[in-house]
Nucleic acid binder design. Structure first.
Lengths: 191, 191, 191, 191
DNA sequence: AATGAATGAGAATTCATTCAT
DNA sequence: CATGAATGAATTCTCATTCAT
């Protein structure tokens, strides 16, 4: 029998890591970080409690991993050219994709806002959060400047706040929130 | 010694209740609900752990009380005539007061969003939350209708989302968030 | 009924503290620090696990307390005048009392040597240990100097080593170790 | 390829066993038995955790092996003629070698005293310990008898205690302990 | 009313050991 | 022979809540 290659092992590890993260994502979203125990996660993932610690060094580490994975998934939408310059089309695409992701990744966004509003949890995610978010703000500011918005800095902040607010309102009551119409309205406002 | 009247007792009780709630508000905002222990609260309030349970049924009950007190404080701003009809001046006043309260009651808002984004905490606050928020939405919708906004329902939702988003962004980074300029922009947009 | 005074409360606390320390001493000596769980101690003391942490902030803290209590009990034997000068009679008394304490406090000495020889445990007891032991060495050195021993420093070290060695040998096999005769021999050698 | 002979296999096994034991010795001495995990040992030895169990039945078995190897290394110094009779020269040689070994094998002695003073660890090493130590005592007793010491039994115990005490004191503070001068003093006392 | 000692369920984490590959 | 993923029992510690005083 051919011995398993190192690569195959790596793939197995990676897929189990993903499995654990998905279980955690689901439960964190459903019950919140503090009310989700390692035990619950391991049951959900169908593994033993101990094994968790083979893949993540603590519950906090697991949260961090889940949060950053979600943020990164979101950020790739942004400025697809990676040229630091946002065209009107790109912004429209970004907004559309954002709304799409709000809908599909609702679990992630629940965790995301939980992280933002819980001091102890925010502490865990820490500085790295700002490292990621700040460049995005820069690019938006640049966009508003080029498009002759009166006060680009303010506009950027307002835009960010609006998306956050929409997201948090959608999360609160997904059934009744008119996501599609809100999306059209936002696109209309900004492009 | 003159026996204390029942009224004096009530006043003492009420003021101690307030003391506990203020201590809790401060600590929940600083450390989060889960990382604030009953012990910490009682130390902050200068009373014993046991006495807490004389005023609040449980830690959850205390949270609920703190949250609803804050919401009520906020709601009295709204529609001062209680006539269910919002004038342009009243809306402007409402926005201004909202921004004022965002700044002065930052501790409350931290808890508020923590409540919104933590499923278990939201569960505690429960239905009563919607009972309070829904009428406000109705009044706003009515305002947008009377002022010929194209889609009052959407506009209401967008307005709510925007305020929520502004608040959450301010909370995250109060030092750098341009609250005053954002306020002007919002007033300009809606009145 | 007369209300309990604060002093009575303090006494109750103190006696419970002692109870826990005695239980811990017994079990640490019997099973060693690592093989004695907080659970075992609380059962032995007839209290709940949680209550332990009302009196000691951790298992390590409990160990520290037990060890220092034992060391202090031992040190009061030394130089009863507190004049820093040891007479021949005082040394004889010290040796006699030491042997007495070796016999009666065997549990403590087991822990003591466990602490000395387990790096992680020694770390817990830490610097405070040397703060206590060093002055004793000084006084002994002074004694040997005044009594014209050839090399007081060496003699001090040898004396300390001998007592440690006797103690550890007694602990290992109390039934068969001729403690009384060894004591006479030591007195004869040093006074 | 030439098949490996059984003898070669044995040699490889033996050398790997030694490697593991050396790693364990080093880590047990540094961190103590309980704070050294199988994982740490296997990393130190550059092998897998699983392989450890191919060479040693358990962690306890590994400790036992390490301790007995050290004791045996020490015992061969003793009575080189194996005639059960110790000459004055042999005793001097024995003392000198003992002090030499105290210095070079400090890691072992740390473990040794840890074993002596930790009940659970002593239990592991068990009876075999006494089987080894008792004959040595016999030979020393015989020596003191032949050399007209007043009470050979007591003298033997005292001698053993002194060496143990010296060793434990050296271990505690190798930098400052005057090992060489103590050695001269001991030789002077006993030969 | 007021206290804080006491409880005990439950949390995160560790680690010796096993076993499929 | 060699690996390291997987297990699960055991451990320390926390904390909301109760209750005798």
């Amino acid at each position: 029998m051919a011995p398993r290659t190192s690569k195959q092992f790596e793939e197995m590890r990676e897929s189990k890591r993903k499995l654990i993260m998905e279980s955690a994502l689901k439960l964190f979203a459903k019950h919140g970080f503090f009310d989700t125990s390692i035990n619950m996660i391991s049951v959900e993932a169908g593994i033993s409690k101990g094994l968790m610690y083979n893949y993540f060094k603590s519950k906090e580490d697991l949260l961090r991993s889940v949060v950053f994975q979600g943020i990164n998934k979101f950020l790739v939408l942004f400025d697809p050219d990676h040229d630091g310059v946002l065209t009107k089309t790109e912004l429209k695409f970004f907004i559309e994709e954002t709304f799409c992701i709000i809908e599909t990744d609702i679990s992630f966004w629940k965790i995301y806002f939980s992280v933002l509003s819980q001091p102890q949890v925010l502490k865990i995610v820490g500085e790295k959060f700002w490292e990621i978010v700040n460049p995005v703000f820069k690019i938006l500011e640049n966009y508003f400047e080029r498009n002759n918005f009166k006060n680009p800095k303010i506009e950027t902040r307002l835009f960010g706040a609006l998306l956050d607010g929409i997201c948090i309102n959608y999360i609160l009551d997904p059934e009744n929130f008119p996501l599609e119409e809100i999306k059209q309205k936002v696109i209309e406002l900004y492009t």
